[in-house]
Amino acid sequence: MLYTVVPLEDVLEGLEEEPAPTMVLNVRGYSLEVELLEGLQARVVRLFSTDPEHYLLPHCQPGAVIKLKEF
């Protein structure tokens, strides 16, 4: 249930569009759900980890673009 000042139709605009396909990388003790980009890069969608410190890592923030060769 949303409690927002933005009209619902604006919030939900584009909801029907299919989200980009993702894959999960299991690296360095955590899992990153990423969306593949061009040039061996990927955009972080979500982090899966039980170590809260991982959530403070800059490259684990949703939206961060990572180079795949470093992983």
Binding site: V11, L12, E13, G14, L15, E17, P19, R46, L47, S49, P52, E53, H54, Y55, L56, Q61, P62
Partner: peptide, 19 residues
């Protein structure tokens, strides 16, 4: 939410608070 929204993702914020 559709990608046009700028969002705060609570499943990410909560472990950060724990850390």
């Amino acid at each position: 939410l559709p990608p046009r929204n700028k969002t705060t993702k609570y499943e990410h914020v909560i472990p950060q608070l724990v850390a």
